[in-house]
Design a binder for these strands. Structure first.
Lengths: 140, 140
DNA sequence: AACTACTTTATAATTATTCTAAAGTATGTG
DNA sequence: CACATACTTTAGAATAATTATAAAGTAGTT
């Protein structure tokens, strides 16, 4: 039974509104993801490793996947892909853009990019969002 | 030994300049990819299935992967990723953009999108390219 | 406190991709 | 233009990320 102290309320609320019961494992994941000053990017494997390092009783892989998926479906995480067949998740859910620099990802605030011209959506469709990836290379 | 008729020269040249000997399997793949009016998108699995359907002697999976990788490294194919952990390849290598509509990909000509403002590259880096993904949803 | 539906977990299964090593082939050399 | 050799093809094994399974555990309601 999760102790319902105020300190955890915000993290528990994210779980509940994602359709998840706030179990101990999930609350810890939610805190790990959202209890920080700056947003960040991660893969499920990275998340699992960094959380389980500190724990005697490990959280299982399936729980990480389940929790991340639910948080993503509820809109608390954004998913994106690089060219390496791995899903990345971003705790910055505001519309924004990315630099990709050899597997490293750097956020670009949405106000740093504006458009002069954008195409119409095909008929019957509308634009959900627009995301820009700026690929970098070394300057030599 | 590949018969070196003119009809295949262009496809063989792509292979050679990708560092590949023009074996029969590779020439067929090159023709399948580039001997068409319109560019297209594919996964290696899709490529393999559609080519092998018509063949009595199947081309192996490894040959598809090897050939596609070499063509991509040489710049004859562009790679991109959706959120499903699969690599997609595009025979349209000109700089362009995409609509993503529930796993379907539609090209957007690069002249359909222009920028009013773009960020500087971090120091020591320069911009290799800029790609825009416009995600679509149904209009209801 | 008891019941029931939801969770966790270890493990198996799946999918996309890469590796391996044996058998086959392109190509330069003589 | 036959030979030698390095590059290829292939089937199958290996790997990596992810999803499925089913038994044991727990949250939330009664």
């Amino acid at each position: 039974m999760q102790k319902m102290n105020n300190k955890n309320k915000i993290f528990i609320d994210k779980l509940r509104s994602s359709g998840l019961r706030p179990t101990n494992q999930r609350v810890e994941i939610s805190k790990f993801l959202f209890n920080r000053k700056k947003t960040f990017h991660f893969t499920v494997e990275e998340l699992k490793n960094s959380m389980n390092l500190k724990r005697s009783k490990k959280i299982s892989t399936a729980t990480f996947y389940n929790t991340v998926h639910a948080l993503k479906s509820a809109g608390y995480l954004k998913e994106f892909s690089l060219e390496n067949n791995t899903s990345y998740y971003d705790t910055n859910i505001s519309s924004h853009h990315h630099f990709f620099d050899n597997g490293k990802v750097i956020d670009i605030n949405s106000d740093k990019i504006t458009f002069r011209k954008l195409p119409e959506a095909p008929k019957g469709k509308k634009i959900k969002n627009v995301e820009v990836v700026i690929r970098l290379e070394n300057n030599n």
